[in-house]
Design a protein around this nucleic acid. Structure first.
Length: 478
RNA sequence: CGGGAAGUAGCUCAGCCAGGUUAGAGUGCACGGUUCGGGACCGUGAGGUCGCGAGUUCGAAUCUCGCCUUCCCGACCA
């Protein structure tokens, strides 16, 4: 393999695949669309999981676990839902040699099994709200797959809640969408646009779907987390009912929300560059790498370098620091190795700097390099990581801002997308015909969301010119 | 799921069209040495059911058919 990965500007898709594989995040498995998440990639997922799981717990939810296999009859009770998922459900038809009397679906999502179980457990308003979550794997037989972004099997969390009132459910989907926003922005340094999906893009069976949309560095949009207000669609279909405070029988209101390993694809495409990954410091499996620089004919110098490395290690505290002590590899190769893996900070410890009591630091996100006294540098690492975080965020935020435009007509939209892809905001009336017109204005365009931050804004729909009160985010999407 | 391309060492590929000793290169890997502040060099060595399965043939990496996987372009989707 060539030493350098494919340049991002040259071929973005190849750059992505090269980076994922060379950085050892994941690799292809023998079954189409399936991937092996390798230790470095899984460590990243565990960091993301931990951050999000804390938020899920903080907002009052409990984790539990439902089975992988779902009887076909369960899946079929909510008509729109079945229809929506029919093309991508994988089925188990045999147990050993024997054909099953009823096929079992490998969960494409768990609403159906969860509703079926909670129908037995919810009887009274005193049983509500139900606030649960599960971390699990999902299988969807996708036509076209890409590592992390769209795989046949993926990992995610799916939250499921049941409430007494629509108002509570509405509040819940907003709250959880905001957790996703917080995860993306505060932890992954990915600025996102929260909003509501159009009818045609919403989850099958939902009253409405909210999502956060992130901009990748090629200007394409990535749906990075979704939150669905399911109303009573499923609770009616699955016969979940309870006696309310007036002893009247009611169906609870329900929500579900999910965030998957897809977000890792988003992290890669939002921050990566020609040298490989750029890890946001708060979730980076390795936050600081120390590269010792020694000469084999200088035992005294080597001892001093090792002593300094050991001191950094001892002083790292909570900082995830690794000293690259591999022998026989020159420093330059180690630099490239860790840059490919996106480690936010590198500390180079060599006899030259050490003679002056100093070490060299290099920040991954902007390549900036400077020297610091060895004394006290370990203690400064958290602050330096924070600065790396701020810069990673700032770079992504600047990109989003600079590549967002306002358009007011289909013609303007078409002209805009004749150039580099951007996020286009436009007044939009939500009529299906107008959505079709938007999609037709340029190749691969779609309405990503109706922006939550601009809901209620008066305007004239870019397609039909009639009064509108929503602003659509229009983009090319993964 | 339609249209196209590809699959030969861990990786990138040559060889295939015109079937014929023991299947090659670069890189990577292991060991030894010289090196060492941006992907070093020399030497030695290991590593292959030529994607899988049938067929044609005295003989198949090479020709034919089927299947699997990957990539690109569409339709579908987190």
């Amino acid at each position: 393999m060539p030493k350098a990965i494919t340049r991002k500007s040259e071929d973005f898709d190849r750059w992505y695949t090269d980076t994922v594989r060379r950085a050892e995040l994941a690799d292809y498995a023998p079954v189409r669309g399936c991937m092996v998440i390798r230790p470095y990639g899984y460590a990243l997922w565990e960091r993301i999981q931990r951050a999000l799981d804390d938020m899920i717990k903080r907002t009052g939810h409990e984790n539990m676990y439902f089975p992988l296999l779902i009887p076909e009859s369960y899946l079929q009770k909510e008509a729109q839902h079945v229809e929506g998922f029919a093309p991508e459900v994988a089925w188990v038809t045999h147990g050993g040699q024997r054909e099953l009397e009823e096929r079992l679906a490998i969960r494409p999502t768990s609403e159906t099994i969860i509703c079926s179980m909670f129908a037995d457990w919810i009887h009274s308003y005193r049983d509500l709200p139900v606030l649960i979550n599960q971390w699990c794997n999902i299988v969807r037989w996708e036509r076209r797959t890409r590592l992390f972004l769209r795989t046949t099997e993926f990992l995610w969390q799916e939250g499921h809640t049941f409430h007494e009132s629509r108002a509570e459910a509405v509040e819940e989907v907003e709250r959880m969408l905001d957790c996703y926003r917080e995860l993306a922005e505060e932890w992954l340094c990915i600025p996102v646009v929260p909003g509501r999906k159009t009818e045609s893009e919403k989850f099958a069976g939902a009253e409405y779907t909210l999502s956060i949309e992130a901009m990748m560095s090629d200007g394409w949009a990535l749906q990075a987390g979704t939150s669905h207000q399911l109303g009573q669609n499923f609770t009616r279909a699955y016969g979940i009912s309870y006696s309310d405070r007036e002893n009247a029988l009611q169906h609870p209101f329900q929500t579900s929300w999910g965030l998957s390993t897809r977000i890792i694809g988003g992290l890669i495409m939002a921050h990566g560059d020609d040298s490989g990954l750029v890890m946001p410091p708060r979730v980076a499996p390795i936050q600081v790498v120390v590269v010792p620089v020694t000469r084999s004919n200088d035992a005294e110098g080597a001892a001093a370098v090792e002593a300094a490395c050991a001191r950094l290690e001892a002083g790292a505290g909570e900082v995830r620091l690794r000293v690259d002590r591999r022998e026989g590899i020159r420093p330059g190769e180690k630099y490239a190795h860790w840059e490919l893996r996106g480690v936010p900070l590198r500390v180079t410890v060599g006899a030259r700097d050490l003679a002056a009591g100093a070490v060299t630091l290099t920040r991954r996100v902007d390549g900036e390099s400077w020297t610091e006294p060895l004394e006290g540098v370990a203690g400064r690492l958290p602050a330096l990581l924070e600065e790396a975080h701020t810069r990673t965020w700032a770079r992504a935020e600047t990109m989003l801002r600079e590549r967002t435009v306002e358009v007011s007509s289909l013609e303007e939209l078409g002209q805009t997308f004749a150039g580099e892809p951007v996020f286009a905001n436009a007044p939009f009336c939500e009529r299906p015909g107008c959505e079709e017109a938007v999609k037709a204005a340029a190749h691969a365009l779609s309405v990503r969301v109706l922006r939550r931050d601009r809901s209620g804004e008066r305007g004239r729909c870019l397609a039909c010119g009639e009064a509108s009160s929503e602003v659509a985010l229009i983009a090319r999407a993964y």
